[in-house]
């Protein structure tokens, strides 16, 4: 049984593409055949985060218009042969995606893939609507910050009323909270909303917390999904989230400030 997962947030810049890339690589590394699709037509970036920007020949819109086959457009990752990327079109405008076209592509992918991750654009317009319409699960990426939490709640409303599952009165989309750019130190100082605060407001199941991390910029600079930086905090947080989603019982981490030992305190300010 394959699952379609939408990575969404409403607000821009909270870490949707970083999350899509990390989760896709995580599932693939666990042996699940995974496709990750960029829905941000006109502003594609997933290819860049995954480091395959120079291998893009055909894109999502080409398939919908019948100018290329799915197999021609899918880019196989060089690090993991279970991971495939479907880039967005950079030149067309966003009306190039149609409900029918997207549905057809997703149905074809479902025949051979275990997980299909839809990287949603920011906003609540066409691209975002199509990215979530066919979803079985939703990863709501939220920052502990007022505008992001509000937009996430708005997105939840849209998921529960405008998705295919909602329109057909099927079991609702399963929603998971991924709280990113979390800074336990500022939470402790009362300067940042805590995990509990955000969960209380959104009443969502917490899949995991991703700490604010320098590793994320380092990873995107070099086109390597941060989950492959296994020594980094953000990389480990995503690895935990992958395992948790796949049903393993992994305790939550990165919620409280790491206690530095005397040694650490002596050598680092």
């Amino acid at each position: 049984m394959s699952r379609i997962i939408v990575v969404t947030s409403g607000k821009g810049g909270v870490g949707k593409t970083t999350t899509s890339a990390a989760m896709a690589m995580g599932f693939a590394k666990k042996g699940h055949k995974t496709a990750v699709i960029d829905f941000d037509v006109g502003l594609r970036n997933l290819d860049l985060i995954l480091g395959c920007e120079r291998r893009v020949v055909y894109d999502f819109v080409n398939i919908i218009n019948g100018e290329a086959t799915l197999n021609q457009a899918l880019i196989k990752d060089k690090r993991c042969d279970k991971l495939f990327i479907l880039p967005a079109s950079q030149t067309r405008d966003k009306d190039a995606l149609t409900l029918e076209g997207v549905g057809k592509v997703l149905n074809e992918l479902k025949e051979t893939f275990d997980y299909i991750i839809c990287d949603s654009p920011a906003g609540i317009e066409r691209g975002a609507h199509l990215a979530m319409y066919f979803a079985d699960d939703a990863f709501i990426v939220t920052n502990p910050e007022v505008s992001s939490v509000r937009d996430s709640d708005r997105m939840l409303g849209i998921l529960s009323s405008k998705s295919k599952r909602a329109e057909n009165n099927e079991t609702p989309i399963k929603e998971y909270l991924l709280l990113s750019r979390y800074n336990p130190k500022r939470v402790k100082l009362g300067e940042m909303l805590s995990v509990d605060d955000v969960q209380e407001i959104l009443s969502l199941h917490l899949l995991g917390v991703i700490p604010e991390s320098q590793a994320v910029l380092n990873a995107s600079n070099s086109g390597i999904p941060v989950i492959l930086d296994e020594a980094s905090d953000a990389g480990q947080a995503y690895a935990d989230i992958v395992n948790r989603y796949l049903g393993e019982d992994v305790p939550q981490r990165f919620i409280n400030e790491e206690k530095k030992g005397l040694f650490g305190r002596l050598f680092k300010g």
Binding site: E145, V146, V149, R150, D153, R154, G157, V187, G190, E191, M192, L193, S194, D197, E200, I201, L202
Partner: peptide
């Protein structure tokens, strides 16, 4: 400020819902 943020969001979110 986190407490203020939480209170503002709770009111806003329940209103918008």
């Amino acid at each position: 400020s986190a407490k203020i943020a939480k209170e503002r969001l709770q009111i806003l979110v329940s209103h918008e819902r």
